[in-house]
Design a protein around this nucleic acid. Structure first.
Length: 281
DNA sequence: AGTGTCGCCTGAATGC
DNA sequence: TGCATTCAGGCGACAC
């Protein structure tokens, strides 16, 4: 599912094909996804020019010429694809939004599970918007420091894994990268967040940045392949060390799998967590 | 304010 | 084989 690196990859992929294009035609195929699409959105964005693309947390921000922002969240299963001709494009199952561009191409947002979101807000109201106002720091920006992380976690009794996925603590880290970062930092996902020491948080801070940066790198190489095939801007397969590796030996592990059972899968807050009980404490 | 739970939604995987 | 059930999870709403 798209977490920060995947969304970042999609944003980078959007820049060459969407920036400086004018939205000639827009269609909202599915007004009622989980969060309803703003009423009249199609008519409102038609004729607007795309100035730039950026990302905040897991949201894709499409900045329009009129100081408004068209925002897409990919949810769990959302993808963005481009097609050559928006006039002849035939909607397929789970298409929710089409933007017909002035170069004739179509940008289509498709999301089978409808967990994605389409928002349209004034640039000046972005920071106070309900979906943005409580967001924590960007993990790859300098405001995210071990100290800031310590401050955000202070007194929190909830498990560190759950806290890492809390977008008010730090944004962009979802279920996969929370497990991966904790594994690299050698910290048990079950630890109460407020009990993790500063030296450990330094490791965790570095681990979060490392997993996200590596995944973005990996997305970048996928993106180059996309350019060749003109495919979809959505997913890429990154190598995970613990996620979906239940029962396997973790990287560099010398212990006997028969005896230890290998990487363990547990459920926290209704989400699966993968970790190595012998390397994470 | 912090914490935990539920519901949204569909396709794939699994169970009988 | 076919139908039913389970599972996946980001985020908002809600209860306490």
């Amino acid at each position: 599912m798209p977490e920060l690196p995947e969304v970042e990859t999609v944003c980078r992929g959007l820049v060459p094909v969407l920036a400086r294009k004018t939205i000639q035609k827009a269609f909202v195929y599915t007004p009622k996804i989980r969060v309803p699409v703003p009423k009249g959105l199609a008519g409102i964005v038609e004729g607007r020019r795309v100035v730039s693309i950026s990302r905040r947390a897991k949201y894709i921000l499409i900045h329009l010429h009129d100081e408004t922002v068209l925002i897409i969240h990919l949810g769990m299963t959302g993808t963005i694809r481009f097609f050559d001709n928006h006039v002849t494009y035939k909607k397929i199952k789970h298409d929710h939004l089409l933007l017909g561009l002035d170069n004739g191409k179509a940008m289509v947002f498709n999301d089978p599970r409808r967990f994605g979101m389409i928002l349209h807000v004034k640039k000046s109201e972005l920071e106070t918007h309900a979906s943005f106002r409580h967001l924590g720091p960007e993990p790859l920006e300098k405001e995210f420091t071990p100290k800031a992380l310590q401050e955000a976690l202070r007194g929190r009794k909830t498990a560190i894994k759950i806290a890492l996925m809390d977008q008010t603590i730090v944004v962009g880290v979802g279920n996969i990268y929370a497990s991966e970062a904790l594994f690299r930092a050698g910290i048990s996902p079950l630890r109460p967040a407020g009990d993790v020491s500063l030296p450990e948080l330094k490791k965790l801070h570095a681990a979060i940045r490392a997993v996200l940066e590596e995944a973005i790198q990996s997305g970048g190489s996928t993106l180059r392949d996309y350019r060749k095939t003109d495919g979809e801007l959505g997913y890429f397969q990154h190598k995970f060390r613990v996620y979906e590796h239940e029962g396997e030996a973790c990287k560099g592990c010398k212990c006997s799998i028969n005896r230890t059972g290998g990487i363990k899968k547990i459920v926290q807050g209704g989400r699966s967590t993968y970790y190595c009980p012998r390397k994470q404490h």
